[in-house]
Design a protein around this nucleic acid. Structure first.
Lengths: 175, 175
DNA sequence: GGCCACTGATTGACATGTCAATTAGTAGCT
DNA sequence: AGCTACTAATTGACATGTCAATCAGTGGCC
C-alpha cells in the first residue's frame, strides 16, 4: 500500500549521456580557446596570459602604478601567486617594485617602459585573435546567447557560493 | 578616381567593448566552473581532475589496463605530463606500472583496487555536481545552444589548426 | 612608551605543466 | 651479426600555482 509506483532508478538524477557530451564539448572548447589565445600571445609577444593581465591592469592604473594588494584584487589573484609572478616579471624588467610612502609595509608595482612597450605590442594582435576565434564565428544572436549563458551559469555558481577571494566580490579579470 | 570612400578607421576590426565583455564573461565563467568542480572533486575524494581523467580512462579499458601512450592519446595529454602524473599516482597506489610483454620498452598502466575504489567513490558526486552547476541551471534549449556554440567555436579553432597532439585528431577528454 | 592584534607582502615547500634531452628497445637492411 | 632510424617512456630543468608559515610595520589602548 504505501509506495508502489516503482520510480525508475534515480541516484538522485545523474546527467544523461547526451548532457554529459554537451558538458564535455563546452568545457573542452573553452579550454582549447584559452590555450590557443595563450599560445598566440606567447609566440607574438613573449607574454603569458598572466603577464598580460598584470600589464593591462597597470597600464590602466593612474600613474601606471598600483599597490600590490589592489592589483591582486583587481585581477582576482591570490596574493602569493601575484607575489611570485611579480618576482618573475621584475626579473624581466616588465615591472618594478617601489616602496610605498604611505605605508612602509606596502609595495607599489610600477609599469616600466619595457613593460609598457611589451603590452602595447601585444594588445592589438591579442584583441584581433579574440575577434577571430570567438566573436567572428558567432552570429549576433549566438554571441548574445553566449553572454546570457555565462550570466546564467555564473548566477548558479554564485548561489552555491564559493569565492576565491572572499573580500572581493565580483571584480573582473580583464582580457 | 580610384578609391575615395574614406572607410572609418579600422585596425582590421577589433572587438567592441560589448563583445569583449561577453568574451570575458564567457571565458571566466568556464574557468570558474572548472575550478568549482575541481575543488569539489578534491574535497570529496582527494582526487584532482587529472587523477579523475586517468582513472576514468583506465576503469573503462579492458582489463582496466592500458599502454601508457594509448592512455595519453585517449585523454589527450602530452606523454611527459602523463609520465610525471603517473609517477605521483603510483606513489599513492592509485595505479601500478607493469612491464609490457609485447614490447619491452612499453609500460602497461594498471588500475589498482585502491584506484578503482577511489574512482567509484568520486563518480556519482562528480556527475551530480555537473548536473547541479551546468545542466540544471539551463533550459533544454539553452543546453542545446551551449552544445552548438561549442561546436561552432571548435570548428573555427580546427580551421586555424593548432593541435596539441598532431597524431591524434579529435580524441575527447572525458569528464 | 610598551603591548598586542591585525594587515601587507613575501617566502618556502610542494603540486602540476611544458619542453628538450636521454635511455632503452624494435625493426629494417646489408 | 652490425648499422641505423625510429619509437616508448622517462627524466631534468624550469615555469607556474597553491597553501601555510613568516616577517615587518600599523594602530589602538593602557
Amino acid at each position: 500500500m504505501t509506495q508502489n509506483t516503482p520510480r525508475p532508478r534515480r541516484t538522485r538524477q545523474l546527467p544523461t549521456t547526451e548532457q554529459l557530451r554537451i558538458w564535455r564539448d563546452f568545457i573542452e572548447t573553452a579550454d582549447a580557446l584559452r590555450a590557443e589565445l595563450t599560445a598566440r600571445l606567447q609566440s607574438e609577444s613573449s607574454l603569458s596570459s598572466g603577464d598580460y593581465a598584470v600589464l593591462l591592469a597597470l597600464s590602466e592604473a593612474e600613474g601606471q602604478r598600483m599597490r600590490s594588494s589592489e592589483l591582486a584584487a583587481h585581477i582576482d589573484w591570490e596574493r602569493s601567486r601575484l607575489s611570485h609572478h611579480l618576482g618573475r616579471m621584475e626579473r624581466r624588467e616588465l615591472i618594478r617594485r617601489e616602496e610605498c610612502a604611505a605605508d612602509s609595509r606596502g609595495a607599489e608595482i610600477v609599469l616600466t617602459p619595457t613593460g609598457l612597450q611589451a603590452f602595447r605590442a601585444s594588445t592589438v594582435p591579442h584583441l584581433r585573435a579574440i575577434r577571430e576565434l570567438f566573436v567572428d564565428p558567432l552570429t549576433e544572436q549566438e554571441l548574445i546567447a553566449a553572454g546570457d549563458l555565462a550570466t546564467t551559469l555564473r548566477a548558479q555558481l554564485g548561489t552555491v557560493g564559493r569565492r576565491r577571494n572572499p573580500t572581493t566580490p565580483p571584480t573582473t579579470t580583464r582580457t
